[in-house]
Design a protein around this nucleic acid. Structure first.
Length: 488
RNA sequence: CGGGGUAUAGCGUAGUCCGGUUAGCGCGCCUGCUUUGGGAGCAGGAGGUCGGGUGUUCGAAUCACCCUACCCCGACCA
């Protein structure tokens, strides 16, 4: 057991907090509910950004930037949207301070004519802009993404999972037809699912949201849901088909080939720094963070073991070849030659920071031409020949990536089950995990189930076969199982 | 925003109920020597407006009131 670490068994949320703290991912700031993302944590986000940004560009999107501030009046234009976000908006009312009797104070003479909302999401400002961009069918589609920070004044916050301010990307697209917009929303869901599974090594369930869980202003919300190690669901990404709601609210019309005025069809989609929370809770163990090699800021760390400085010099020289060979393969390597810490300390440190592979090189290895290779996911060690080590490391990183996904998938499998009666549901929901059950499709039933069990419909799975059944709660007829779980 | 809890050195804490020496300990930090294949040992040393404010008292980390932050549980949400 590492120092000052809680175990998942003892206290799951404390374990999560300990990992965030010890791995130096983030910490609480002086501002309530807002976190400082530390360099190591931010490096993970940068890796995520790099990959996602390329995926967006490969699917034809461009980046742009829209204002942080949104005029209050914009929000009231789409009824569902304003209702969904009104309760958690930060509002800018003044633009100047002055020196008062008790120090600095807001200058009452500097009141804004129209108050500004700090964006909780950017649909309104973007659709107000798109009106000017769209005249003809020739201007469509518009495929834009922005990387930004947003603010949602949350009551209860948790590092990465829910903070008042967070970083994300939001894609906003405009299309000539409904079909095209729906296809876009589905396409981006696939992009997110690929990213989660191929890069984060987190298996996700693809589905749509029930009306209760749908994005404010959307006709349909597609989602990917991941299962955390405590059996709770985490929404990892959403993609919305917005219909013509925003086009109508902001009067965005185009002239069709048939010379008719038509409203534009819209989508929006986003993932946030919450993904880092998902990463932590999907793979980490009681010794600390475990990172998938494809997103780890440091993929391989080399720890020298020596007594005299001459030995360190010798090791340093020997190691240069390995570093070069690994970097040539695009593998990120850190050689930790700090003389201020002992090897054992370093071993523990890189363990709780989740570095996938650690190489130990000491006098014994110099003599034998070997290197000790330790993998983070299984905590196993093996002595290998130094010759051609880069190929073995490359294969090992791929194997670790694969193993993390396989383990997470097996966990999800073990914690997913079909439930057919209400009594059974009440028992099973306490055990956590995903429950596949019939639902009569009514929001009232879902709400009732939520009130009674704290479980919500996480997703109506895509491509699930039609199956006759009875609603778990009301007994009304149903044709499809949906996924219930408690969630973050 | 409701209910409960916590706040003492960078971190973790004792002391608080029952007010009274110089606020104690562990980790970490600094210096030196010995060490270095899983969180080193010994010796010496630095570091505190006891979360903030107001009050009670001869005297407050300790009692009262107010404020702030954080944690847990609810409601709300990516």
């Amino acid at each position: 057991m590492a120092k000052n670490f809680s175990t998942r068994e003892e206290n799951y949320s404390q374990w999560y907090n300990d990992i965030v703290k010890h791995a130096e991912l983030a910490e609480n700031s002086a501002v309530r509910g807002s976190m400082v993302i530390k360099p190591y944590g931010y490096a993970i986000w940068e890796n995520m950004q790099k990959v996602l940004d390329q995926m967006f560009k490969d699917t034809g999107h461009e980046n742009a930037y829209f204002p942080l501030f949104i005029p209050k009046s914009f929000f009231s234009k789409e009824a569902d949207h304003v209702e969904g976000f009104a309760k958690e908006c930060a509002v800018v009312t003044h633009y100047r301070l002055r020196n008062g009797e008790d120090g600095i104070e807001v200058d009452p003479d500097a009141k804004l004519d129209e108050e500004l909302i700090v964006r909780p999401t950017s649909e309104t400002i973007i659709w107000d802009t798109y009106r000017k961009w769209v005249q003809s069918y020739r201007d469509l589609p518009i495929l834009v993404n922005q990387w930004a920070n947003v603010v949602r004044w949350e009551m209860r916050t948790r590092l990465f999972l829910r903070t008042a301010e967070f970083l994300w990307q939001e894609g906003h697209t405009a299309h000539a037809t409904e079909k095209e917009a729906v296809a876009e929303a589905k396409q981006m869901l696939e992009v997110y699912a690929d990213f989660a599974e191929q890069w984060m090594a987190v298996p996700v369930l693809k589905g749509t949201k029930s009306p209760n869980e749908r994005f404010a202003g959307a006709l349909d919300t597609y989602c990917i849901e991941a299962m955390m190690q405590d059996g709770k669901a985490l929404q990892a990404g959403t993609s919305h088909f917005l219909g013509q709601n925003f086009a109508k609210a902001f009067d965005v019309k185009y002239l069709s080939k048939e010379n008719k005025q038509e409203f534009v069809w819209a989508t929006s989609w986003g993932v946030s720094t919450r993904l880092i929370g998902a990463l932590i809770m999907a793979h980490s163990d009681d010794k600390g963070l475990v990172l998938p090699p494809k997103l780890a800021p440091i993929q391989v760390v080399i720890v020298p073991i020596y007594r005299k400085t001459e030995q360190l010099d010798e090791i340093s020289e020997k190691v240069q070849g390995i570093i070069k060979a690994l970097r040539a393969k695009g593998i990120s390597v850190k050689f930790d030659s700090r003389d201020t810490h002992k090897p054992g300390f370093k071993f523990a440190e890189y363990e709780y920071k989740g570095v996938p592979v650690r190489l130990g090189i000491g006098p014994r290895d110099l003599e034998n031409g070997t290197v000790e290779v330790a993998r983070r996911d299984t905590l196993t060690k093996e002595v290998m020949d130094m010759e051609g080590i880069e190929d073995k490391i490359e294969a090992l990183l791929a194997e670790i990536q694969e193993n993390l996904f396989t383990k997470a998938a097996a966990f999800r499998e073990d914690n997913s089950r079909k439930v057919d009666t209400w009594d059974e549901f009440l028992v099973e929901i306490e055990k956590g995990g995903f429950l596949y059950a019939h639902w009569d499709g009514s929001p009232e039933t879902e709400q009732k189930i939520k009130d009674l069990t704290k479980a919500t419909i996480r997703a109506i799975p895509l491509g699930e076969e039609v199956e006759e059944g009875k609603c778990i709660y009301t007994g009304n007829p149903s044709t499809k199982r949906v996924v219930f779980a408690r969630s973050y």
